[in-house]
């Protein structure tokens, strides 16, 4: 059974991927104590293990060091989460890449100004909303006839895409914006209500009023 | 044995990943004939199979449709390329993500103006050069004691990172810029001289004089 230490700051959606995967697999993940973001991950000791100094970062009990959130989630997962055939494994990689390339940049462009961690740019936000609409629509079409993204069980694809959508559903996808994505909403609400997911992200509240940039 | 059709335009480094993987695995990949980028991938028939309309896109002989270049490369690969243990598989995902997040954005920022794809931006290019230096240095440190990125054989990690570095080594990494990354150069030159790689990208010429933006 995999065990190890996860270096991350609190409420890190990327770290949630591995923490949720471990809930399913039984892997023993312990959040590294005393981790100070911006200090610990810049220390020589940390950079020796993780040269890019990025978090989340995982150090297994038997000394293996893995960076990049999708790789860590894969390592602490189990066979069910990883996919049962070459086709499913390829489809899981496809959805993990979809999350990183089609959702994440647009999600951060839209949500970061709302969180006050980036200047608001009207044009960029408008473009991000279009991109998010396209991504949610692609998910919606896919989930019209499917309960989960790959095969008939929850896999890393569902976990990674769900974690990457958390900021959107929490801060800006209000009722009005999300109502047309019926299948995506059904799938997302099912995921956040799995006990393994709740154990990590707690009770998730869907956005009621879209956050606005406060100059 | 996997067989199928690959939709792409010529000289697409993302498509090279799957084409090279197929050279190793023996998968039968045929480049879709009559594909016109900007038309075929916008047709209803294509969008029905590949809703995001992106290439490369793969349709297997038995009707499975896979988008995203890393997923296609995984599907057409073999067990050796995919990694032989959970740790190796996780490390391969880590390097594929490294290519997409640490190399690709900076490579596009630096090379696209040189190719005339984008406007030149002095500040962005300077930042990109720093990022490429960091990425090449991380590779160089890793390859000081290793021949390949994961384990003792060529895997998808080597193929994906090599393909993502092609534009840089071809257009801007001249002798002066690349000379300090001795281990990375050794690894890259070994990869491009593998017959399975040569069969796809042909004879690769390292950059002699860094391309400049021509206003």
């Amino acid at each position: 059974m995999v065990a190890g230490k996860l270096y991350t700051y609190p409420e890190n959606f990327r770290a949630f991927k591995a923490l949720i995967a471990a809930q399913y697999s039984g892997a023993k993940l312990e959040i590294a104590k005393g981790f100070v973001f911006g200090e610990t991950n810049k220390s020589d000791a940390f950079l020796k293990k993780f040269p890019l100094g990025k978090v989340p970062a995982f150090e297994s009990a038997d000394g293996h060091c893995i960076a990049e959130s999708n790789a860590i989630a894969y390592y602490v997962a189990n066979e069910t989460l990883r996919g049962s055939s070459d086709l499913e494994k390829a489809q899981i990689i496809q959805w993990m890449t979809f999350a990183d390339t089609e959702i994440l940049p647009a999600s951060c462009t839209w949500v970061f100004p709302v969180l006050g961690i980036m200047q608001f740019n009207k044009q960029a936000t408008a473009r991000a909303k279009e991109d998010i609409d396209k991504a949610l629509q692609a998910l919606d079409d896919h989930l019209l006839t499917r309960t989960y993204l790959v095969g008939e069980r929850i896999t890393l694809a569902d976990i990674v895409v769900t974690c990457t959508l958390l900021h959107l559903y929490q801060h800006v996808l209000d009722e009005a914006f999300r109502k047309s994505y019926v299948n995506t909403n059904r799938w997302f609400i099912t995921l956040i209500n799995q006990k393994q997911v709740k154990a990590v992200i707690g009770d998730f509240k869907l956005c009621e009023k879209a956050g606005e940039f406060d100059p | 044995m996997v067989a199928g059709k690959l939709y792409t335009y010529p000289e697409n480094f993302r498509a090279f990943k799957a084409l090279i993987a197929a050279q190793y695995s023996g998968a039968k990949l045929e480049i879709a004939k009559g594909f016109v980028f900007g038309e075929t991938n916008k047709s209803d028939a294509f969008l029905k199979k590949f809703p995001l309309g992106k290439v490369p896109a793969f349709e297997s002989a038995d009707g499975h449709c896979i988008a995203e270049s890393n997923a296609i490369a995984y599907y057409v690969a073999n067990e050796t390329l995919r990694g032989s243990s959970d740790l190796e598989k996780a490390q391969i995902i880590q390097w594929m993500t490294f290519a997409d997040t640490e190399i690709l954005p900076a490579s596009c920022t630096w090379v696209f103006p040189v190719l005339g794809i984008m406007q030149f931006n002095k500040q962005a290019t300077a930042r990109a050069k720093e990022d490429i230096d960091k990425a090449l240095q991380a590779l160089d440190d890793h390859l000081l004691t290793r021949t390949y990125l994961v384990g003792e054989r060529i895997t998808l990690a080597d193929i994906v990172v090599t393909c993502t570095l092609l534009h840089l080594y071809q257009h801007v990494l001249d002798e002066a810029f690349r000379k300090s990354y001795v281990n990375t150069n050794r690894w890259f030159i070994t990869l491009i001289n593998q017959k399975q790689v040569k069969a796809v990208i042909g004879d690769f010429k390292l950059c002699e004089k860094a391309g400049e933006f021509d206003p």
Partner: peptide, 30 residues
């Protein structure tokens, strides 16, 4: 967490680069 998030390296310009790349190769191969 918001401060930590602020230090994340996100490719905000990705849509712009995707667009430019798509246009370039459509012209090349159109």
């Amino acid at each position: 967490a918001a401060d930590c998030l602020a230090s994340e390296r996100i490719w905000f310009d990705k849509p712009r680069y995707d667009e430019a790349e798509r246009r370039f190769y459509e012209q090349m191969n159109g």
